[in-house]
Amino acid sequence: MNGQRLGYVRVSSLDQSTLCQLEDIELGRVFTDKASGKDTKRPQLEELLKFARDGDTVIVHSMDRLARNLDDLRSVVQKLTGRGVRVEFVKENLTFTGDDSPLANLMLSVMGAFAEFERALIGERQREGITLAKRRGAYRGRKKVLSTERAADLARRAAAGEPKAVLAREYGISRQTVYEYIRKADPKN
């Protein structure tokens, strides 16, 4: 193989470090996303998929860094290997080339299923924790972005016909949040 060695790194939140995932591995270029692995709509993953060429090798720390569900994992690996790109997973010590044995394909499926299962468990534990915190009175939800006065001003301006997108930009919130403040200001809506 004469192609480039490309790295893909993903962490779920902005404050997590990406440094240890492909440490001490010589790479020509690294694509780094700071986003959830729940789907493949990640800017650097999409860039990697466009950039990788026949003969390149994509190196990922572990399968769950590439995708958190089996369908996405298999799809990404097949897209890459279908174009002659090798995919190596360091933690699992597995390499996929497109000419893989039935055992290699089974390993991809089993390990991908474990990543999907782990993501489901994380979500379940999070929901359980929130339920318990609510019972104790310790969970109050996300802190309100706007003060009561600013929320009332936003609702008044929206009722006067100002565009929701303009209000969202001005107040530094999403349009969905604008609608939520409007709904809370006038429960009849």
Rank of each mutant, 00 (worst) to 15 (best):
T97A: 05
D15A: 12
R42K: 06
N69E: 03
R86Y: 06
A104W: 02
P43C: 01
S75Y: 15
I59Q: 03
L19D: 15
E118C: 03
C20H: 14
T97E: 06
R53F: 04
R169Q: 14
S101N: 07
A104L: 13
V90I: 14
D153H: 13
A160Q: 15
I59D: 03
P102V: 09
R140H: 15
D15W: 02
G3T: 06
V87Y: 13
G37N: 01
D33T: 02
R150V: 06
R119F: 08
S75E: 14
L146N: 06
E116V: 05
N189E: 06
K184M: 10
R140F: 12
L45I: 02
Y8P: 02
D56E: 01
R5I: 10
K164L: 13
L48P: 03
Q78W: 13
R29E: 14
G82K: 11
L132A: 15
T18I: 02
Q4M: 15
A115Y: 03
A185Y: 03
G37F: 04
L19M: 09
Y171H: 08
G112I: 04
G55I: 03
G82R: 09
G123I: 06
T40E: 00
D72R: 04
I173Q: 08
V76P: 01
E92M: 10
R68E: 03
V110T: 11
Q21P: 03
L19T: 12
L80V: 08
G84D: 09
A152R: 15
V58F: 05
T32D: 00
Q44K: 13
D100R: 08
R157L: 10
G172P: 08
Y179W: 14
H61F: 13
N189P: 00
R135D: 11
G161T: 03
F114C: 07
I25R: 11
R119C: 05
L14E: 11
A168R: 11
D33M: 04
R135Q: 15
R175D: 01
R142T: 08
I130R: 05
R65F: 12
A151E: 10
A185E: 00
G137Q: 10
Q4F: 13
N105A: 09
L103F: 15
L146V: 04
V85E: 03
D71A: 13
L66A: 08
A168I: 09
A104V: 02
E180R: 15
R83E: 11
V87H: 10
A155D: 04
D72S: 04
